[in-house]
């Protein structure tokens, strides 16, 4: 069995690349997806990149802990090489740094834990394939817009318990940006109802409520909204949840570093502009179907309010 030779040309089937240093994982995945996709396998990062150089794929599913090259390193390189491919990390255990790296550098679609459930993995890969196919035309273009273009038409919402964070970010971003502040979910939704917001910068929890449900619902309702997490309470579980259910764009840890923060917000605003202009891309940032919170939950009412929000994006209005 040599997975690298399995390159067929001319089939209309979507191409999926699996990368894992354990060949039995590859065997299992190949069997699982047999018949649905054109499957390529690689036992390491170098081999995977070699494969990508020869032929682009629609979806890459990679392990994190591999000798030679970690999954994040691979996905970062793959993003350069094959920007249209959707990236999924499939791993048994990852420390927080690895997860943050996968968000910020790999811009991954999903984070799937080992042992995986075949149904969930199948559904995730199917969603990724659909997104890749839907955005094939536009996603291949390099995401970098000309830097001279100032993407400041949309506002930035800072959601944090500590009002100082809002002031600090306002100071960092300067006068060229419209920055709004909120110290609670309710207030955040008020701002969203009133202002045109392109980027939301939020802590993982606000007033002891996780923001993941809010961000997920927002993403579903306004796919062009871009979320950036800014927190000092980083934990691996929450980060994974945020990527899978909130499609957060960047994950920054406090204390706030000025340059770092500015770059992240600037690039988030560009991403927002890109999403607003090209609705085909929305599926690439689709979040997992939400688990509806119990109707008694205070969040429930908020989420309903979000669904009633006005849609600002010019392409969809």
């Amino acid at each position: 069995m040599n997975p690298a030779t399995a390159v067929s040309v001319g089939t209309a089937k979507p191409r999926v690349l699996f990368v894992d240093d354990e060949p039995r994982v590859l065997t299992s995945l190949r069997m699982l997806f047999r018949g649905q996709y054109e499957i390529h396998c690689a036992q390491g990062g170098a081999q995977a990149l070699e494969l990508l150089r020869r032929q682009p794929v629609d979806v890459i599913v990679s392990d994190q802990r591999m000798p030679g090259m970690t999954g994040i390193e691979l996905l970062r390189a793959a993003r350069e090489l094959n920007p249209a491919a959707m990236r999924i990390l499939l791993t048994g255990y990852s420390d927080l740094n690895a997860i943050i790296g996968s968000i910020n550098e790999g811009e991954i679609f999903r984070f799937v834990a080992k042992p995986w459930s075949n149904e969930d993995l199948t559904a995730t890969v199917a969603r990724a394939v659909a997104a890749a196919r839907a955005s094939l035309a536009v996603a291949s273009a390099r995401p970098d817009l000309p830097t001279s273009e100032m993407p400041a038409s949309a506002g930035v919402l800072v959601l944090d318990d500590d009002p100082a964070v809002f002031a600090q970010i306002q100071a960092i971003l300067g006068a060229g940006y419209r920055v709004h502040g909120a110290t609670g979910l309710e207030q955040a939704v008020d701002v969203l109802a009133r202002e045109r917001v392109g980027v939301i910068i939020s802590d993982t929890r606000v007033q002891d409520q996780p923001v993941v449900a809010l961000i997920g619902t927002l993403k579903r309702h306004q796919p062009e909204l871009v979320a950036v997490i800014l927190t000092d309470r980083a934990d691996a579980g929450a980060a994974i949840e945020l990527i899978n259910q909130g499609q957060i764009y960047r994950f920054i840890t406090k204390p706030i570093r000025e340059g770092h923060c500015k770059i992240a917000v600037h690039s988030a605003l560009r991403q927002h502009q890109r999403l607003a202009q090209q609705p085909e891309l929305h599926r690439r940032y689709e979040v997992e179907p939400a688990v509806e919170p119990p109707s008694a939950s205070p969040v429930k009412g908020l989420l309903d309010r979000i669904r009633a929000l006005r849609v600002w994006a010019s392409g969809r209005a």
């Binding site: 499939l90 048994g92 075949n118």
Partner: peptide, 14 residues
Amino acid sequence: AHEINTPLGYVRSN
């Protein structure tokens, strides 16, 4: 955990 989850992953999948 990684060592165990990897075989567990393919065992379950298989």
